[in-house]
């Protein structure tokens, strides 16, 4: 109590002291980075050739098509990496056994990602709930989605300005056209040879198309991932 009174007494002096300098890293972390009014979400540098450097429109839909085990998870989680690192909340629905160490390698901030690994038949309502709380929702769908359910989710995401990322193995599983369509082809792994070496990197071709100017018509070669675990642009 006594200390408080003294503090009060010297209040006029204290403002003359220089303000303590904060660690820039700490400042970057406490700053309200995820301003809800921001119209775009950041994208990872490796994906700039697909999305442009402007970023990813809030409220848009991204559909990623890749055969199972063909890099769909890597590409989809890379889309989440920059927003999560910038402090946006992300939800991941239906990815039953996510490799958390791999996600760290992609640059995802795990503190900003919530998983609903096995939503079962309630998946659509789980996605709907997460659209209420997160800035980006990733949905892995392995079966045919009914047209009205897809339409409802897309409409709700657009209304709440939440970006929806859908990962499918065939384009027919998600019945609506998306703002951004990414598909992976020609994946090749390097590094293993007759018992020697280990998986080092996967090179794949990603083609992007879309509507409403959300994306450039573009075909890019990417390391999915490169040897350090992150996704990077590859030379042709």
């Amino acid at each position: 109590m006594l200390w408080l009174r003294y503090e009060h007494m010297f209040a006029s002096v204290s403002h003359l002291q220089p303000r303590p300098t904060l660690d820039p890293k700490l400042l970057a972390r406490v700053r309200p980075v995820a301003a809800a009014s921001a119209r775009v979400l950041p994208v990872a540098p490796a994906l700039e050739s697909l999305f442009g450097s402007r970023g990813l429109q809030r409220g848009s839909t991204v559909r990623i098509t890749a055969p199972r085990g063909g890099g769909g998870s890597t590409l989809a989680l890379t889309v989440l990496s920059a927003p999560s690192a910038a402090g946006h909340w992300c939800g991941v629905v239906g990815m039953a056994d996510p490799g958390v160490a791999g996600m760290v390698g992609l640059g995802i901030d795990l503190r900003r990602v919530v998983f609903v690994p096995a939503p079962g038949t309630a998946w659509a309502s789980v996605v709907g709930e997460l659209i209420d709380g997160a800035d980006m929702v990733l949905l892995r769908c392995d079966q045919q989605v009914a047209h009205p359910i897809a339409r409802n989710l897309v409409a709700k995401a657009r209304d709440r300005q939440v970006t929806l990322v859908i990962v499918t193995s065939t384009p027919q599983q998600w019945p609506l056209p998306s703002d951004v369509e990414l598909s992976i082809s020609d994946a090749t792994w390097s590094g293993v040879d007759g018992g020697y070496g280990h998986f080092v990197s996967r090179r794949a071709t990603v083609s992007a198309s879309g509507r409403r100017g959300a994306v450039r018509e573009h075909i890019a070669a990417l390391w999915l991932p490169s040897s350090d675990g992150a996704v990077a642009a590859a030379d042709w």
Binding site: V113, V114, F115, V116, P117, A118, V126
Partner: peptide, 29 residues
């Protein structure tokens, strides 16, 4: 806790109440 954090926490707790505590997970390295 920011405003966005509180919103997400409310959603996560609602989902946990519906589907069980182990339905909503976070990654941990």
């Amino acid at each position: 806790m920011g405003l966005a954090d509180e919103r997400l926490h409310a959603v996560a707790r609602r989902l946990q109440a519906q589907l069980g505590a182990e339905s909503v997970m976070v990654g941990y390295d």
